[in-house]
Amino acid sequence: MDDHAPIANLSASNDDADISGDPRLRPAPRGAFALAGVTVGLLVAAWLAVYFLLFLTRGPVG
């Protein structure tokens, strides 16, 4: 097979194809929102902890 095969054409030819039976698409990502939510939640919690418990307790500067 030619490594430089026209991928665009391949995609175009599949535009109307029914991909619901494609086994490669069956294991769809699950829990992505939970993972992203926990990650962002930890990041925000760490930011707030540093800001309120460390930065602000040291007193204002200006």
Binding site: V44, W47, L48, Y51, L56, P60, V61, G62
Partner: peptide
Amino acid sequence: VSTVLLSSIVYAAVGMHLRPP
């Protein structure tokens, strides 16, 4: 999230007179 973070900064700036040098 952005609102919480920005509100914290505005609170400190206005309420605690915390301003950068």
